[in-house]
Design a protein around this nucleic acid. Structure first.
Lengths: 105, 105
DNA sequence: AATATATTTGACATTAATTGTCAAGTTTAA
DNA sequence: TTAAACTTGACAATTAATGTCAAATATATT
């Protein structure tokens, strides 16, 4: 079994599991089927709003799907970068620092 | 002492340490001083090319500066997101997975 | 205080990236 | 073999990023 699915794969699997056609889902999203097709094959990125709607339409956990979506957006930023891994680690450090110093003050 | 400097702060500090004016550095970058001023105050993002040039102009470590730059870009993507921290962790996991499965095959 | 120089600000122009449509092509399955 | 679902690629529209310019403000010097 595939342990690391792209958000596109998740969307397609769950759409098919529900027996929905591109046409059905894209109508609800108010976009052309072509885009949804591309999103499912990772040829295009969805917008945050589309992800949230898709979670509703396909009965998926919103938070979970959003985390997947954001993580792909992050990786997209560094996909061609030698130093991507280092940058990610530093980003996490900074994130910790930010969270530490932002409570009630 | 400040333990977590923004790239803008680093750039300004080092420019001033060298006794350079915005005008001097922005000329080398071939942009208006206004932009450099904004970059140094984190009001605008630099481009990757500008960062690399700045490292040369200010005698800073290229890799180090680039990592800082990329990490800020990453954080920028999730700055308004509740789930930012989770997304970062998931991105790191995916990154590991990618690196694992990309060696010589 | 007046002036000169450096920096900042904000309105706006240009360019580049993202998001979308459409129509024709391909695949899948009756 | 034809009908429906999906894919592809050229292009249009929209939005975001990057830049200029001129005026405003701050900082220094005389």
């Amino acid at each position: 079994m595939k342990e690391n699915k792209s958000i596109g794969e998740i969307l397609r699997e769950n759409r098919e599991k529900k027996g929905l056609l591109l046409r059905h889902v894209s109508a609800k999203l108010d976009i052309d089927t072509a885009i949804l097709s591309k999103i499912e094959r990772s040829e295009r990125k969805a917008t945050k709003e589309q992800i949230l709607k898709l979670a509703e339409i396909l009965d998926l956990d919103k938070e979970g799907l959003l985390v997947q979506y954001l993580s792909e957006k992050i990786l997209y930023e560094i996909k061609d970068e030698e130093l991507g891994s280092k940058a990610l680690k530093v980003a996490e450090q900074k994130m910790k620092y930010i969270n530490k110093n932002k409570s009630g003050n």
